[in-house]
């Protein structure tokens, strides 16, 4: 009792409440009087964990991007240099960066087009049971196993798989053959072509576009649409001038996910697609067998910078309100 008295001598509760006995009671009193201490105690474990484990490793990695590798001995030279960043500008590496960013942009565009009707229908027309069904219909594919989804597409896109079979039954095999004969998008089969990589990216990241888009469409007041129609707008005009601008924050939020996830993925292009590398694969290759951690680290800076610019742009469009 006396120990508590010295700690909380000036506390306002002294006059009202009797002090608690035991260390637990004293601790409770102390924390109640000093909410700042409680806050500090609560924040300490998560912040320490994230700062040490995550930020610590991240900074160590970024630091290593300023080291360089000795090309003859293969040893890492730990002196500050920008030489490794210069290597990123080699045509072969620049090619990888351009290819990845182009793919991410295409996947994002396609995801927006495919996601829009689903999100719009779920937000505006689905009610009750249908609403729950739509919600689960997006959540289940979102949360089911990433590798299983990729595997499913390997089954679908295989030369002997269901898609070829379906096109043959529809007498459209010539269409597939014609597409695969095209230079950049084609290949010996769909699972070995850039088209295949694109479809799988689109499939895997689509739910990440639907959810924020739906959230922003839910907030479009229905009476705005009626007002637009009352003023004589056609449905197309209403869509272009009312719905689309209001859905833009949701689109921007969804595109953050689809863009970022495509930029960093190295598994999908490894399993489905051509042998041309994406940023993620380059990072993986450089840190693994090549042992060139500085170049791998410099490569990871590319998605960080691209995403930084992207987030900055998205914030100006109000994307963070729709998350």
């Amino acid at each position: 009792m006396s120990a508590v008295g010295t700690i909380g001598a000036a506390g306002p509760s002294d006059a009202i409440l009797p002090k608690r006995g035991g260390w637990r009671g004293r601790l409770a009193d102390l924390l109640w009087r000093r909410p700042g201490l409680l806050l500090l105690l609560m924040l300490m474990p998560p912040v320490l964990w994230l700062a040490v484990v995550y930020l610590g490793s991240l900074l160590a990695l970024l630091l290593q991007s300023f080291f360089s590798i000795d090309e003859f001995s293969g040893l890492i030279d730990r002196s500050f240099t920008l030489k490794t960043y210069g290597e990123l500008l080699r045509p072969a590496n620049l090619d990888i960066i351009v290819r990845t960013v182009t793919m991410a942009a295409l996947v994002t565009l396609a995801a927006a087009v495919v996601a829009f009707p689903i999100a719009y229908f779920a937000a505006r027309y689905a009610r009750g049971k249908w609403k729950a069904l739509f919600y689960l219909g997006v959540m289940l594919p979102l949360w089911s196993s990433y590798l299983v989804k990729v595997y499913a597409w390997k089954l679908i896109l295989a030369k002997e798989g269901i898609l070829t079979w379906l096109l043959q039954k529809l007498h459209l095999a010539w269409l597939l053959d014609g597409w695969l004969a095209l230079p950049v998008v084609g290949g010996s089969s769909l699972s070995l072509s850039a088209t295949g990589t694109f479809v799988v990216f689109l499939y895997v990241w689509l739910p990440f576009m639907i959810l924020p888009l739906q959230a922003s469409l839910e907030r479009v007041p229905a009476n705005l649409l009626e007002a637009s129609a009352d003023l004589g707008a056609t449905p197309q005009q209403t869509f272009r001038n009312v719905v689309f601008p209001l859905a833009l924050p949701g689109l921007a939020a969804g595109s953050i996910f689809t863009f970022s996830l495509t930029l960093g993925d190295y598994i999908i292009p490894q399993i489905i697609g051509t042998s041309r590398l994406f940023i993620g694969q380059a990072v993986y290759a450089h840190q693994g067998t090549a042992g060139n951690i500085p170049l791998a680290a410099a490569f990871t800076v590319v998605p960080i910078v691209v995403m930084g610019l992207y987030l900055w742009g998205a914030r100006r469009m109000g994307a963070f309100d729709a998350l």
Binding site: V53, Y54, G56, S57, L58, A60, L61, Q64, I256, S260, L261, L263, G264, D265, Y266, G280, V283, Y284, Q287, I293, A296, A297, T300, P303, I304, M307
Partner: peptide
């Protein structure tokens, strides 16, 4: 979770 997983992965590995 906002940064690509590969960045988290390689950062941890090098650490």
């Amino acid at each position: 979770i906002a940064l690509p997983g590969i960045i988290t992965g390689i950062a941890l590995r090098s650490a």
